[in-house]
């Protein structure tokens, strides 16, 4: 049987329910579209949330997971506040993005993905985000020339922050960490393990079905 006729099965919906944070809410969407209309970045995405939910229900696994759409979410929570069915849409969007990333299906060269990666790596080092380092990394993400240009542009802001002691230049050198970095790493590892087991089980279930 071809892919086309496997539409409108629960297969992908179940996969999402098993692997995506708050994925069990997807089925509750009634296609009113208030989330899509409420999203401040709406005009920039290919598929707004309500359409993503419909695509999940239409079993469009590839299209959903390779989509850049959920990467646009800025967590403004407008959609959650307005959803008449109380779907935690923001969480589902992040969950989907994360799952796509895990599956290696997320599109490359997504600025938000790049940012997320840097943010995460930065965080892992010392258990807290080093804003100065993260900021500089982002400035120079696309090469030296652009980095310098951006830095110059932001000069005034930087100086202002220095003056008001909102920025400590010493942080650029190493920065301070959180209290129990070991404990944090252990916790994160445990979480990763749990997720992986969960995903493996779901995969098993899916494979046994088909």
């Amino acid at each position: 049987m071809s892919q086309a006729v496997e539409k409108y099965r629960n297969t992908f919906l179940r996969e999402v329910e098993a692997n995506v944070e708050e994925g069990q809410w997807v089925k509750m969407c009634m296609q009113c579209g208030v989330c899509s209309g409420s999203c401040p970045l709406g005009p920039h995405w290919e598929h707004p949330p309500q359409e993503i939910f419909m695509m999940i229900r239409a079993n469009k696994r590839e299209e959903v997971l390779t989509s850049s759409s959920m990467w646009f979410c800025t967590s403004c929570y407008n959609c959650i506040a307005r959803c008449p069915r109380e779907l935690p849409i923001t969480h589902i969007m992040h969950g989907l993005a994360h799952y796509a990333q895990r599956q290696g299906l997320a599109p490359k060269e997504l600025p938000t993905a790049k940012f997320a990666k840097r943010f995460w790596d930065n965080l892992l080092k010392k258990g807290r985000v080093n804003e100065l380092q993260l900021g500089l990394q982002l400035y120079f993400m696309n090469g030296l020339a652009e980095g310098i240009k951006t830095s110059l542009k932001m000069q005034k802001v930087g100086l202002g922050m220095l003056k008001t002691k909102r920025m400590d230049p010493m942080e650029a050198l190493g920065g301070h960490g959180c209290k129990d970095i070991k404990g944090l790493k252990a916790a994160l590892n445990k979480a990763k393990q749990i997720e992986e087991t969960k995903a493996a089980k779901a995969l098993e279930r899916l494979q046994s079905k088909s």
Binding site: L13, K27, M28, M30, R57
Partner: peptide
């Protein structure tokens, strides 16, 4: 009843 149907996993589309 509609919500319960969705909760049980019934797919709906216009």
């Amino acid at each position: 009843f509609y919500r319960s149907g969705q909760d049980k996993g019934i797919l709906f589309t216009k």
